[in-house]
C-alpha cells in the first residue's frame, strides 16, 4: 500500500514534468517559426557595419 502511494505521487509529478517539457519545446519551435516569418516578411536587412547602405545611396543620388 505504501509503495502504491509513492508510485501515485511519482506518476503525477512525471505527468507535470512531461507536460511542461512538451509545452516548452513547442513554444521554442513556435518562436523560431514566428521569428523566421517576421524576418522574411520584413524585406532585405541592411547592416550598419561601416558598409555603404544601398537604400541611402539611392536616396542621396535622387
Amino acid at each position: 500500500m505504501a509503495i502504491r502511494v509513492e508510485r501515485e505521487i511519482h506518476r503525477r509529478r512525471r505527468s507535470q514534468n512531461f507536460g511542461v517539457a512538451i509545452c516548452l519545446v513547442l513554444f521554442i519551435i513556435l518562436m523560431m517559426a514566428l521569428s523566421f516569418v517576421k524576418l522574411t516578411n520584413s524585406g532585405p536587412v541592411e547592416g550598419y557595419d561601416h558598409a555603404p547602405r544601398p537604400s541611402l545611396e539611392e536616396k542621396a543620388l535622387e
Binding site: R11, R12, S15, V20
Partner: peptide
C-alpha cells in the same frame, strides 16, 4: 512511507 493525501499534487491535465 509518506502520506501525501493532504498535499496538492495535480497532474498536468
Amino acid at each position: 512511507v509518506t502520506d501525501h493525501s493532504k498535499d496538492y499534487d495535480p497532474v498536468f491535465g
